[in-house]
């Protein structure tokens, strides 16, 4: 390759010998078009970074004074009286409701999503797999308010007997104690189920993607050893897809943690004086639904700051989950290349 200026990426023939692609510096030509687009791209990058930094600084600046005024322990208190002369607020109840609903959602959506993805990629005849995949993708296009409304008006009534039955059989366990809820659709359990339906498309789509990339050579290797279809899936498909499924689960979890509208519509807030309960048949508020429920009454900086602090905890939680998903995806790339 000559080093005369003016050579560009298009001068390069495609190589499949594993050579790294040209890096951006060498591909640049210094022509006007290059400089305009280069400038635009750099500018946009800087803009986004600045924006995120500013938002972060703003939120922290709002939260810190409230946290300093807080007379209760922010991390261990169940109280939520964010304003007045004696502000006391903590996140325990919010964290519990957020984590429980998300875990229920994961427990349902991950096995279900993986099964659907396996069906679409391994079992379904080709005329069926495309429509089936499209149908699942369509679930992702349903606005979350619709899920909440549907849960409230339609699905919730069917959940009532299921919840009652579970309570009769397993009610002796603290997790399944009937929390004095008037109806099953306002419980953490049901919110988790609706969340599961909402994250199912993400989990399915990513799992489908990795399962369809399993090299034929691996699948045939297993079949040639005398594996049945299911054994082939266990020896070749699932191990290959595992990192992808983990990252799919994490992305789904990220969404479940932050989902607001549907959860707000469904969950009923606890009476502040009620004792803490481990039951999934209790009510409660997640970080997001508490903020949404109370958004109308942010009247003092002290109060607003308390909610922002809670929002920051949600942000950190989601960030950790997404970062973990990233790490897994990166590791998988290194592994498949």
């Amino acid at each position: 390759m000559s080093s005369i200026t003016g050579h560009s990426v298009t001068d390069e023939l495609p190589h499949d010998d594993g050579r790294p692609p040209l890096d951006a510096d060498k591909a640049g030509t210094g022509r006007l078009g290059d400089r305009i687009f280069g400038g635009l791209a750099t500018g946009s990058g800087i803009f986004v970074i600045a924006l995120v930094t500013l938002v972060g600084v703003f939120l922290i600046a709002q939260a810190v004074p409230s946290l300093l005024n807080n007379n209760a322990n922010f991390l261990t208190s169940r109280e939520w009286v964010p304003s007045g002369t004696d502000p006391r607020f903590g996140i325990v109840d919010l964290l519990w409701a957020t984590v429980v609903t998300s875990i229920i959602a994961m427990l349902i959506a991950v096995p279900l999503g993986v099964s659907v993805a396996l069906f679409i990629t391994q079992y379904a005849p080709s005329w069926l797999s495309r429509p089936a995949a499209a149908l699942v993708d369509l679930l992702a296009a349903v606005p979350s308010i619709v899920y909440g409304f549907w849960g409230l008006k339609v699905a919730g009534d069917y959940f009532q007997p299921v919840a009652k039955f579970t309570d009769t059989v397993l009610g002796w366990l603290p997790f399944f104690e009937w929390g004095g809820r008037p109806s099953a659709k306002s419980t953490l359990a049901f919110a988790g189920i609706i969340l599961a339906i909402m994250i199912l498309p993400i989990v399915t789509a990513i799992s489908r993607e990795v399962f369809s990339q399993v090299p034929t050579a691996h699948k045939e290797g297993a079949l040639a050893l005398g594996a049945t279809k299911w054994e082939m899936i266990r020896t070749a498909v699932l191990p290959f897809g595992k990192p992808g499924v983990i990252s799919a689960a994490m992305l789904g979890l990220g969404r479940a943690l932050g989902e607001t509208l549907a959860v707000t519509l469904l969950l009923s807030a606890l009476n502040p004086s009620a004792p803490f309960s481990f039951s999934i048949f209790g009510g409660g508020e997640t970080f997001a639904s508490r903020i949404a429920n109370d958004a109308g009454e942010f009247d003092s900086p002290q109060k607003t700051g308390a909610y922002i602090a809670a929002g920051l905890v949600l942000f950190i939680l989601t960030f950790i989950v997404n970062a973990a998903a990233r790490v897994v995806i990166e590791r998988r790339k290194a592994f498949t290349e």
Binding site: A217, E220, A224, G226, T228, T235, P239
Partner: peptide
């Protein structure tokens, strides 16, 4: 067919050991 494949083994053009094993 599964029984047939246990009786008649096969080696492919490209080596295909199971990568995670």
């Amino acid at each position: 067919p599964v029984a047939v494949r246990r009786t008649v083994g096969m080696v492919f053009q490209r080596p295909n050991p199971f990568p995670t094993m």
